[in-house]
Write a protein that binds this DNA or RNA. Structure first.
Length: 417
RNA sequence: GCGGGCAUAGCUCAGGGGUUAGAGCGCCUGACUGUGGCUCAGGAGGUCGUGGGUUCAAUUCCCAUUGUCCGCCCCA
């Protein structure tokens, strides 16, 4: 029995790790440009934390959580999303007392028990931003701006942000009723289970993929016409800000999001390169959540971006990321010369020059082949002839040119190249 | 949770109820003593996912199982 990685997980192999690192670096950089600081929270949390925040009826809570009981009888869950965990830490450590504001970013694995398919895994990774303590839609705009700036920085162009407003509680309640009334004749054609599901959360009909429902929803009332006047004004101003920031967006009343905690603004960036899992990121405002978790009433907005999906889109768009380049490969000629070659390699590394050498005493030719395969920029030949003169031969692969360099000047000479 | 496709070399795949299962790429070695990439020659590498069944005979047919891919659901 050979061991395999668990279903829905993936190894990031050396051939791909440079892409991950590049993406992580880009994200950290963008987050830093906006003054966000990293928060790292545990891989698992009390199960109740997620039940509270994501909504009992959401699929994530009702069937996708990796929950277990530990030896002390605690009910724990591998985090299916990061916002709840981050907010718990914020409240616990009082990082955002009333009146203050806080900008956080995170890079984290998330876990959901689902059937894997394109763009969907049981262990996935998310980048995210959270902006706490700012009620103004300027905060929503900043989050969306940072998100699009990040995607641009990794080479994804022409992405459109889909935005919507869910309003406050009043608007949502009256809209749900109106939507159910509108769809009544359709609902009577469904079996009880499907019907109950929709009645619990009618908004789900909006992003359904059932052609009949899509057709029906075309003439459904829009939530936008149910918004409280204050929410309407907010949403209008948000659009002005986005326009001013030259961010492409579309208002899409069908964007409702899968987590129940959103209020007012919600948004997504979608890509048609991802098959059925089109959402590249999702976010929105969650003004009631911190209070719900026992903190002070605090307005907040955030975004979660799928790392694997970003990588998939990058790949589909043909964006290549250069790996770490090797500068020098030391080629040793003759068995007795190995200690000298090692010493030279050591000196180069201490000078900050990436250097490899073959440790298995292969033939000269094999060593050169290996150097080429590793993508080395230079080969340094260490042979008895050269060493006797206190020199080594430096060969530049791209030009094939060779020069003799005194050993004591080697690091200096290579560094300036 | 539901439906469908796939599982043969490191990778991408071909093949076929019956001797030593193939290709391309990759890998290793060599082409006059210390010069890579290109070319040429040689070589290594597979219990044909796992378990069971049918058969004189299964890697090939059937069933199950696991994995994988795609769709539904849902979402990052």
């Amino acid at each position: 029995m050979k061991f395999q990685n668990p279903r829905g997980t993936a190894d990031v192999l050396p051939i791909d790790s440079a892409k991950w690192q590049a993406l992580e670096n880009s994200f950290r950089k963008t987050a830093g440009l906006y003054g966000y600081k990293e928060i790292r929270t545990p891989t698992f949390e009390d199960t109740e934390l997620f039940q509270r925040t994501s909504g009992e009826t959401s699929d994530i809570v009702s069937k996708q959580m990796y929950s277990f009981e530990d030896k002390g009888g605690r009910n724990l869950t591998l985090k299916p999303e990061v916002t709840a965990s981050a907010l718990r830490a914020v409240i616990q450590n009082n990082l955002c007392p009333t009146g203050s504001q806080l900008r956080l970013y995170y890079l984290s694995p998330i876990f959901r028990y689902e059937r894997p398919q394109k763009g969907r895994f049981r262990e996935a990774h998310q980048f995210g931003l959270e902006l706490l303590g700012v009620a103004s839609e300027l905060a929503d705009a900043e989050i969306i701006q940072a998100t699009t700036q990040f995607y641009r920085s990794i080479g994804l162009k022409d992405l459109t942000v889909l935005i919507n407003s869910l309003g406050r509680e009043q608007a949502r309640a009256s809209y749900r009723t109106a939507l159910l009334e509108f769809a009544d004749s359709y609902l009577t054609t469904l079996d009880l289970e499907a019907r109950a599901k929709i009645e619990k959360n009618p908004l789900r009909m909006l992003d359904s993929k059932d052609p009949d429902v899509i057709e029906l929803m075309k003439s459904a009332p829009s939530i936008l016409s149910f918004l409280e006047s204050e929410s309407q004004l907010r949403f209008g101003r948000l659009q002005e800000y986005l326009t001013a920031a030259q961010i492409q967006f579309e208002v899409r009343p069908e964007i409702v999001r899968g987590l129940d905690y959103y209020t007012e603004t919600v948004f997504e960036v979608q890509s048609d390169l991802l098959g059925a899992q089109g959402a590249l990121c999702g976010g929105g405002r969650y003004d009631g959540l911190i209070e719900e978790l026992g903190g002070p009433p605090t307005p907040a907005v955030g975004v979660g971006m799928g790392v694997e999906r970003a990588l998939m889109v990058q790949e589909a768009a043909g964006i290549n990321v250069a790996g770490n380049e090797l500068k020098v490969f030391v080629v040793s000629i003759g068995e007795g010369i190995m200690p000298t070659a090692q010493t030279i390699a050591l000196k180069l590394r201490e000078a900050g020059i990436s250097t490899m050498l073959d440790l298995s005493c292969k033939s000269f030719k094999s060593q050169l082949r290996m150097a080429d395969k590793e993508g080395a920029q230079f080969a340094v030949f260490v042979g008895e002839d050269e060493v006797a003169k206190g020199e080594v031969t430096v060969k530049e692969f791209s030009t094939g040119k060779q020069v003799e360099v005194p050993i004591e000047n080697l690091a200096q000479a290579l560094k300036s190249q």
